[in-house]
Structure formats: C-alpha cells, structure tokens
C-alpha cells in the first residue's frame, strides 16, 4: 500500500482542521475540503481528509461498512490509529451503512461528556434528502439540512441524543469533497 496522505502534513492538516473547526462552529453549513484525496473508492475524499487530520495512534476507530477490511487497512497504514470492534469504546466511527444506532456508541459520562464518539457518516447526498430544520449554538436562527441515507428513526434517535446532553455523540456527514457537522447541541425542530 502506498501512503496517499498530505504532501505537506503540517500545513495541509492545519488547513483541513480549520475547515472542520469552522464546520463544528457553524452546524449544518456545508464546507468543501481544501484538498482532494484519492482513496481508490474506499472512502470519500472529505472522510479521508478528516482521517488524516484527526486520527493517530492515540485514537480508537470503529468501522461499519461492507468495505471494512479495506478501510481498516487504509486507516492503520496511513495513521497508525487503532481499529476496534466495540463501537461503545471508539473515539471516532466511520459509517457507510444506512442503519445505525447512536446509543451503541460512546456517549461519555456526566462528569466527562467529552469522552464520547464522533461519528463520521458517509451519505449519498448532502442536499437532496428529507429536509430537517435545526437550531442551537452556532446557528443564528435556524438552518435547513437535507442529507440522504439516514436511518428512518434518525429524528427520534437524535432527540434522545439531545435529551441526554451534556452526554451524547457528535456527527460529521460527508459526501465526496463536502461535509457538514451536527454537534450534540443542534436540535431538530419538528
């Protein structure tokens, strides 16, 4: 396997981090990654950018995908991160399957809610799905999001995630070179 990551690790990952930082600060707003990364159709370029920016030997990764072994190889080879089988212990999850349950991930504790999973969900499309209106920190009034491929009961799962605040998971939805963030503070309005 060949390393396909950044030529300039320091500055490219800094640049990508700032994009993630902005996306986390402004939930629901779609951002385009600064560099296109070719992964042989294993992962989206946006997902790969997140991996190269945030994963390393100190992170535990859970993968839910048909292509699990390819993704696992990709991550271990390029970042040294530990791929694990227990979703409720992971720092990051990468999900390509439509059905998932937030409750199976690490939700953190009341004392240490930051010790919780960030779930990266690869969807087919970020703008042509069912419309959801969200509000919360980082959103001036409300924001409309329309990703496809979320579980049918996503709304109720997410409401529960809001309910257990400060515990909970945070989501990053990716598609090709684009992505947006849905931190636990974003509430879906009916």
């Amino acid at each position: 396997m060949e390393y396909i990551g950044y030529q300039d690790q320091t500055h490219s990952s800094q640049n990508m981090f700032r994009t993630i930082l902005k996306a986390t600060s402004f939930p629901g707003s779609i951002f385009t990654v600064p560099e296109n990364l070719e992964t042989d159709n294993v992962l989206y370029s946006s997902t790969a950018n997140i991996i190269f920016t945030l994963f390393d030997i100190d992170t535990k990764i859970f993968i839910d995908s048909e292509k699990i072994s390819k993704i696992q190889n990709f991550i271990t080879f390029n970042t040294n991160a530990n791929c694990i089988e227990k979703s409720n212990h992971c720092d990051f999850a990468i999900i390509q399957n439509k059905e998932f349950n937030i409750e199976n991930f690490n939700l953190g504790s009341d004392e240490y809610p930051d010790n919780s999973s960030t779930i990266i969900i690869e969807v087919e499309d970020l703008i042509n799905g069912e419309e959801l209106i969200i509000e919360g920190p980082g959103i001036e009034k409300t924001k409309s999001i329309s990703p496809t491929n979320l579980p049918k009961n996503f709304q109720s799962q997410w409401q529960n995630n809001n309910f257990i605040f400060p515990r909970g998971v945070d989501l990053i939805l990716t598609c090709k070179d684009d992505f947006f963030c849905l931190p636990r503070t974003s509430k879906v309005l009916k």
Binding site: T10, H11, L21, D58, P113, D114, D170, T185
Partner: peptide, 28 residues
C-alpha cells in the same frame, strides 16, 4: 511550525472540537 509537534496539535485539536460541541464545559 508553531512549536508543538503534530501529534500534540492533533490531540489539542480533537479536544477543541469536543469543547465546541459541549459549550462551556471544561475539557481536560
């Protein structure tokens, strides 16, 4: 660049993102 090694920066970056997700919470 910026003194810290890349692994330390990544650790701090991950913490900053969690901190934003839980506004006002003191993230160790």
């Amino acid at each position: 660049f910026a003194y810290l090694d890349e692994a330390t920066k990544r650790m701090i970056r991950r913490k900053i993102l969690k901190a934003i997700c839980i506004p006002g919470y003191q993230c160790p």
